[in-house]
């Protein structure tokens, strides 16, 4: 097992993430229960979307204290690759692995649509050459409104830590932010759902280049078992 997909009570994109990584990209992936340990052979972790612990208190606030999160912090500190999608992004922000916080959409509505996103030149994996200038990806969230204080925001901008911006802001996010990475470049978080855009039964396929970009270090050590 090379990619671990965390599973909290209330996660609901765990199976989709496993399907995208294992069945579509051909990289060995398994779901790991939040009370279990991260397997030692783990090369990358996806914190999937959903409503962990019913989104009670704040989105991600309770998941942050799950036993596996200590493991995840150690994994990230050693340079392990981590991607948080939607609720996973909220959990990474709550746990301090990514800066800022996600609050209620400014429109107060749950936004569920295929969203145009502008790609930023963030690093050697996430840029307009590898991903194209724009992507179409599903979003589905009530709390995707990214907030950070001015100093955090300006350091994100100055260090090219913004991965994706909304084209037509659906939720009031500051600076139209849809996805960010940490300074080091091994922890990623985004509100859009790349795992819901990987097959012909999906509305679009732009999740593939995004997931491949995230999993590039994994693919480099050993290529996929089946080609996509």
């Amino acid at each position: 097992m090379r990619v671990a997909i965390l599973q909290f009570p209330g996660s609901n994109c765990d199976w989709d993430s496993e399907y995208a990584v294992k069945d579509v990209l051909g990289i060995s992936a398994h779901r790991v229960w939040h009370k279990d340990k991260l397997p030692s052979e783990t090369e990358a972790v996806i914190v999937p979307g959903g409503f962990s612990f019913g989104d009670y208190l704040r989105c991600g606030a309770i998941a942050r204290f799950s036993p596996i999160m200590q493991n995840l912090k150690e994994f990230a500190e050693k340079g392990g690759q981590v991607l948080g999608i939607c609720n996973g992004f909220q959990i990474l922000c709550e746990s301090g692995l990514l800066p800022g916080a996600l609050i209620r959409n400014d429109c107060l509505d749950f936004r569920c649509l295929n969203q145009n996103l502008l790609v930023e030149n963030s690093n050697d994996r996430f840029n307009q050459t590898t991903l194209g200038k724009s992507l179409l990806l599903p979003i589905a969230h009530g709390e995707g409104n990214y907030r950070a204080d001015e100093s955090v925001l300006s350091s994100l901008e100055a260090n090219d830590q913004i991965l994706l911006r909304y084209s037509g802001n659906p939720n009031g996010s500051m600076n139209d932010i849809a996805g960010i990475r940490n300074f080091t470049g091994n922890v990623y978080g985004m509100m859009p759902h790349p795992e819901r855009a990987v097959g012909s039964h999906h509305p679009c396929l732009d999740g593939l280049p995004l997931l491949k970009a995230f999993l590039k270090p994994v693919l480099q050590t050993r290529p996929a078992e089946i080609s996509s």
């Binding site: 609050i103 209620r104 959409n105 400014d106 107060l108 009031g172």
Partner: peptide, 12 residues
């Protein structure tokens, strides 16, 4: 919510 943070519910 902090005074510096937008409060969409409060505004509504």
């Amino acid at each position: 919510p902090k005074n510096t943070v937008l409060d969409p519910q409060g505004a509504a």
